[in-house]
């Protein structure tokens, strides 16, 4: 399982944007992500989250700084090589899906990695079952609803069985059942010892499903810690300055003087203890 290390990562978009020198989307990020970690990256639109994760599999190359995958500079590897260990699910499934059937779409990644026969079949079946699309294998992806197309995009990367799973806004546009599926997928991946990195705007989702949360603002990391640390009262002003709100249980817990309770479960626990 690889360790990921970002050292002084800077990315400047030259084209478009501010005429003088482009847009500095990532502005000096140092981040170490250990094997098997569950890390959520939050921040307002344009804070550099998507730009950051696209460096992990080499789709973007640093303007300055380095990305190390298990100590090896990612600059020395092609995107196809990095794809063997780092799977990235894009935010918009329609900018990812291209095959004529659900099955062909999910097979595409593992085939590129050289999987064939039983190994390919079992990877595809497992991925489809994980997102609940096992009965739609022959369906054309465009006949699926938006929420299930998003799950298909997730399955198509899951089937590659990469050690690191990067999800860009996995719950956006999902109904409650879809969010539950995504949660279960992350849980399974974590149990298998895989690293999961997710970008999200859903505070409840990140507080409940991730041990570590990184908050980005204007291309920099402004908070980095557990949900309890990131959503406790001391951090609220920083969160506010990035237009983020702590999840409701965190606010209730602080108001009642119960300490940092970012999830429903932790709030209920604290309430039970205080009344006991």
């Amino acid at each position: 399982m690889p360790e990921l290390n970002l050292e002084g990562l800077v990315h400047v978009y030259r084209e478009g944007g501010v005429r003088e020198g482009g847009v500095r989307a990532v502005d000096g990020v140092d981040l170490r992500i250990g094997p098997g970690e569950r890390l959520a990256i939050i921040g307002q639109n344009g804070s550099g989250k998507s730009t950051l994760v696209r460096h992990l599999n080499g789709l973007l190359r640093p303007t300055a700084g380095r990305v190390l995958v298990d100590g090896v500079d990612a600059a020395r590897m092609t995107v196809a090589q990095l794809a063997r260990s780092i799977g990235l699910v894009f935010q918009d499934p329609d900018r990812q899906i291209f095959a004529g059937s659900v099955l062909a779409e999910v097979e595409y990644g593992p085939r590129n990695l050289g999987h064939r026969g039983q190994k390919l079949r079992s990877a595809v079946e497992t991925a489809l079952a994980a997102v609940g699309l096992e009965r739609e294998a022959r369906t054309n992806p465009y006949d699926l609803g938006a929420s299930r197309r998003k799950l298909l995009a997730l399955a198509s990367v899951l089937a590659m069985e990469t050690a690191v799973l990067v999800l860009d806004e996995p719950t956006t546009g999902q109904d409650e059942r879809g969010v539950e599926r995504v949660r279960a997928v992350i849980e399974d991946a974590h149990r298998d010892g895989r690293t999961v990195i997710a970008i999200s705007h859903d505070m409840r989702f990140v507080a409940e499903g991730f041990e570590r949360i990184v908050v980005m603002h204007a291309g920099r990391i402004v908070l980095d810690g557990s949900p309890e640390q990131v959503f406790r009262r001391d951090s609220w002003s920083t969160l506010e300055s990035t237009f983020l709100e702590p999840p409701l249980p965190a606010v209730i817990g602080e108001r009642l003087g119960l300490g940092s309770t970012p999830t429903d479960a932790s709030l209920i626990r604290a309430l039970a203890q205080s009344s006991a």
Binding site: N57, V79, A80, G87
Partner: peptide, 18 residues
């Protein structure tokens, strides 16, 4: 633009274009 993004997604799924 759409074609470029799908191509990027293909590369992210191991298509060796380099």
């Amino acid at each position: 633009e759409r074609a470029q993004q799908i191509a990027a997604a293909q590369r992210a799924r191991g298509l060796d274009t380099e």
